[in-house]
Write a protein that binds this DNA or RNA. Structure first.
Length: 283
DNA sequence: TCGCCGGTACATCATCAGCG
DNA sequence: CGCTGATGATGTACCGGCGA
């Protein structure tokens, strides 16, 4: 395939993926998405599969099931509410799809999730994990340029390649300055999603809204209240920190993205400072 | 001739209503 | 929540047109 064509396709696939993620609660059909991308159904589907190595419906189902698990872990929702959020018309359909995917029903799955409730996670563990008590901040909207990295979280080669591409893009377009902030967004729980399918967005703040370009996508971080935890320690310990934070914040999470900010970059875990932003609503 | 895209036919799968 | 059958949606293999 020609380079310009691939470049255009990447831009398009970014759009589709972002569209799917923001519309998981609605009906999503091949025809609809192809129309959204101004393409024939046939060609659109072929492109989608060639870029993501799975079919559209497999991708959408996987995203819905994985998000359902996240909701089971972090919110108290009825089966009916959960199925509506996942874009199913009836709880029965959702339950069936869930069981087909995970081999257990959503209720049975939910009953196994007692390992990290606030009651079983003592507050004094917080320092041991490497976290400080959170502060609640009101965040203004931020424009973000990102590059998507799909693969095992923390995999050195793909991360270096991804961050390198992002920096290259920023420099080329004179978007980098002292005010640039660096973020990471992990969309998947590696204990649920296959490691090679985990999505990480390497992000940089930009002063103004910019146009997506090839593999570089754009998004806006929503304004609102965030519980901001400061984490000191190695990146590999972040998963444990997130597990702790989600169990603690269960019940007041907002439907917005959690993300982390790299305050310092260092190969020395003792000097790594990461801020974790968890969108919350007033109690 | 190659790269890209639209189209057809047929097999397969997912969905959902209805019932237990 | 689970099971089942009808039906529509999707996946795949293939073909052909068009423009560079």
């Amino acid at each position: 395939m020609k380079e310009e064509t691939t470049y255009g396709h990447q831009e398009l696939i970014n759009q589709v993926i972002d569209y799917i993620h923001t519309h998981l609660h609605k009906a999503l059909t091949l025809e609809m998405l192809a129309a959204e991308m101004h393409m024939s159904v046939y060609h659109f589907h072929r492109l989608f599969k060639s870029h993501l190595q799975e079919t559209l419906s497999a991708y959408i189902t996987r995203q819905r099931m994985e998000r359902a698990v996240m909701y089971l872990q972090t919110r108290d929702l009825s089966l009916q509410e959960l199925s509506e959020k996942m874009g199913y018309d009836t709880a029965q359909s959702f339950s069936k799809a869930f069981k087909r995917y995970f081999g257990v029903s959503p209720v049975a799955f939910g009953n196994t999730l007692t390992f990290n409730t606030p009651e079983t996670t003592p507050i004094e563990d917080i320092a041991f994990i490497g976290l400080d008590e959170p502060e609640v901040l009101l965040i203004s909207p931020m424009y973000i340029a990102y590059i998507r990295i799909i693969g095992p979280y923390g995999e050195k080669e793909s991360y270096e390649l991804g961050w390198g591409k992002l920096c290259g893009f920023l420099k080329e377009n004179k978007l980098q300055s002292k005010a640039t902030r660096w973020f990471g967004i992990s969309f998947d729980d590696p204990t649920i999603t296959k490691k090679k399918q985990c999505r990480f967005y390497a992000c940089a703040s930009v002063a103004q809204r910019i146009k997506p370009s090839g593999a570089i996508g754009t998004l806006t971080i929503e304004s609102g209240k965030y519980a901001v935890y400061t984490y000191k320690g190695s990146y590999s310990g972040l998963l444990r920190a997130y597990t702790y934070i989600y169990s603690r914040e269960k019940g007041r999470l907002r439907n917005a993205l959690s993300f982390e900010e790299y305050v310092t970059w260092s190969d020395n875990p003792a000097k790594q400072i990461t801020k974790i932003y968890i969108p919350i609503q007033k109690k």
